[in-house]
Design a protein around this nucleic acid. Structure first.
Lengths: 235, 235
DNA sequence: GCAAAAGTGTTGTGCCTACACCCATGG
DNA sequence: CCATGGGTGTAGGCACAACACTTTTGC
């Protein structure tokens, strides 16, 4: 029977997501610990089988909502299909991997076996899930530069220093608040709310609050080079 | 029986490729015309069912070699999974879509029903294949700017003007030979072979021949902005 | 007044485009 | 020697990083 199915060319298909969030000053990913073989004890990405009447993105959104209570995904995007014939033991299963981003102000109520882990200090990962997390991290880092994905890491309103912390954690290096503000302002991505945040206990000037002008993904720096000639408003 | 399979969670999976090449001064894609229903007469991407013991990239390479004689792919990369439940009539089939690039000096012997079409004047496309072609085109255009993918469109040796034609066709706008050469040279992607190409019948200075220093994909302009501080050799 | 934090002004640099100019060949 | 196409020199602009400086608060 298994052979009949294999020969029929039909395959299992699962969807998996590397859900990233900046928590406690570091970029973290949501993983659950496998209780049973295979790979008991190892940490895996949330996800599951693709349902009959949904496409892959709908599926991963549904499963994240149901299984780990993640409903506040500010951004979801496909990473790649992982298809090595032996990527999981037993009957073959392909996986469509996603990057999911959660704003830093929400804290989903995750199940017992589920926890956040810093992407730069991953615990032993199940199957090919470690590679998926790294792909997700690299994709996020790249897109922080040439798109407005930052909105998906940030709360609705924030100070520039708070945003700086988010970018620094995600990129893995110190970002200057001054220049961050200027880059985003130059691109028209930031707008002041008019309010200010109260200063800390040690004083200091109150910080202005900002929000992103758009909360959908947008490529803001389309071509690094080889721009079209006479590049007036063509970008 | 069909229902039993459906409920089992098993799915058909195919691989499809938008094979792009610059031909006659325009960016073209390889398509075959469907003879039979569904969608008879419409043009489809080459590809087919994923085999048992191969991953998706091996599969698309194999199928392109066997079915349309494309063996000279200088670059292959995944685009995305297309998974709308009704993307094809009948039992559900997911598709992993690829971008494939063929250097302009090769001309595969394609079958009778297969032909090259300008990506900017596509004939009626089958299923969701039109969208896949556009994704492939956009991906190529983006990567021409910040990677060295140009090598995959170019023959082993070429003049700067020939390369300019290729970039212009792929990008859809006139690229300056002067600046193209400088950008690629600055990045260390181009090296002179030492030879020159004979001038045309109307004379002119003989053009120096160049080759790409590497023929594997390489990101040459990693972050457009938000560079790490003290950006000496960190890129 | 002083420390702390936010925000602005300014300078310098490197990458890129555009364009002028020089070079090598065929007729 | 002139037309044709290839290659180089140079000037200007823009985006960015870095850092000095000003502003606004708490104590």
């Amino acid at each position: 029977m298994v052979d009949a199915i294999t020969r029929s060319g039909l395959l299992g298909h699962e969807v998996l997501a590397a859900v990233l969030q900046v928590r406690c000053g570091s970029l973290q990913v949501l993983l659950w610990q496998r209780a049973r073989a295979p790979q008991a004890g190892r940490w895996a990405l949330p996800g599951g089988r693709l349902g009959e009447h949904e496409d892959v993105e709908a599926s991963i959104r549904r499963q994240l909502a149901v299984k780990v209570d993640v409903r506040q995904l500010a951004h979801v995007e496909q990473l790649a299909v992982f298809s090595a014939p032996d990527r999981v033991p037993g009957p073959r299963v392909l996986a469509t991997a996603f990057l999911g981003l959660v704003p830093s102000d929400v804290d989903p109520e995750v199940p017992e076996d589920t926890a956040w882990h810093a992407v730069d200090a991953l615990p032993p990962a199940a199957f090919d899930h470690g590679a998926i997390v790294l792909r997700a991290r690299d994709r996020l880092r790249a897109k922080l530069s040439y798109t407005n994905v930052g909105f998906a890491l940030a709360p609705p309103e924030f100070t520039v220093s708070a945003l700086r912390e988010l970018y620094s954690a995600a990129l893995g290096y110190r970002v200057s608040a001054t220049n961050l503000q200027r880059v985003l302002a130059r691109r028209g991505l930031l707008e002041p709310t008019g309010d200010t945040a109260p200063p800390g206990p040690s004083g200091g000037r109150p910080a202005a609050l900002f929000r992103f002008t758009r909360r959908d993904m947008l490529v803001t720096d389309p071509f690094a080079v080889l721009r079209p000639p006479g590049g007036r408003d063509q970008r």
